[in-house]
């Protein structure tokens, strides 16, 4: 089983990204589960969302404490004291940033994935909703699913012009990602 934890803020699409990732993994024949955890729904408040996938049915219903991958949608959350707590060894760190280099933030993280998802989202979608771009970057960096599965899952959630823009955003995330080995 692989466990992925998303850190974002209300309105950035963290919850939707976690669910879209589950749908994309279902396309690949995996068993999936995803859910968010927050208090009141409000824009700007920190949000955590979880996605699990496995070759066998997933029974565990807890939050994710030992992720294989964390995805930080809002770099402002990098100061969270518990952000890197409980990571599995050799785990992956995906960060929405315009930076091209990054210092290893925790020794459990051996792969760093940098993607200017906000920049791409603003260009392609016209708003700072970086989630689909991050899913493209996730596919490229982890190899846990194909870009094609990500693209196939998006029509479940979006349609028309906004779908086309998000497909482009996900493709660019896949192509423009910077992967660092620490």
């Amino acid at each position: 089983m692989k466990e992925i934890r998303f850190h974002g803020r209300g309105g950035q699409g963290a919850v939707m990204a976690a669910k879209m990732l589950a749908s994309a993994l279902l396309v690949e024949g995996k068993h999936v589960a995803s859910f968010p955890m927050y208090g009141f729904e409000r824009r700007g408040a920190p949000v955590v969302a979880f996605t699990r996938f496995d070759d066998k049915p997933i029974r565990v219903k807890t939050q994710i404490y030992n992720p294989d991958c964390i995805i930080v949608i809002d770099p402002g959350l990098l100061t969270l004291p518990t952000l890197f707590t409980g990571l599995k060894p050799n785990s992956t760190f995906i960060l929405n940033t315009a930076k091209k280099e990054y210092k290893q933030p925790d020794k459990a993280l051996t792969t760093g994935v940098l993607i200017n998802a906000t920049g791409i989202a603003v260009e392609e979608i016209g708003r700072d909703i970086p989630n689909t771009c991050l899913l493209g970057a996730f596919a490229a960096a982890t190899g846990w699913l194909t870009l094609d599965s990500v693209l196939k899952s998006l029509p479940e959630y979006l349609s028309g012009d906004i779908l086309q823009r998000n497909l482009k955003s996900a493709e660019r995330g896949y192509k423009e990602v910077e992967v660092i080995k620490w």
Binding site: L26, V32, A33, S34, F35, P36, K61
Partner: peptide, 12 residues
């Protein structure tokens, strides 16, 4: 069914 843990859970 449990709030959050099932109400907001996305599963196949």
């Amino acid at each position: 069914y449990d709030g959050y843990y099932l109400s907001y859970l996305n599963e196949e």
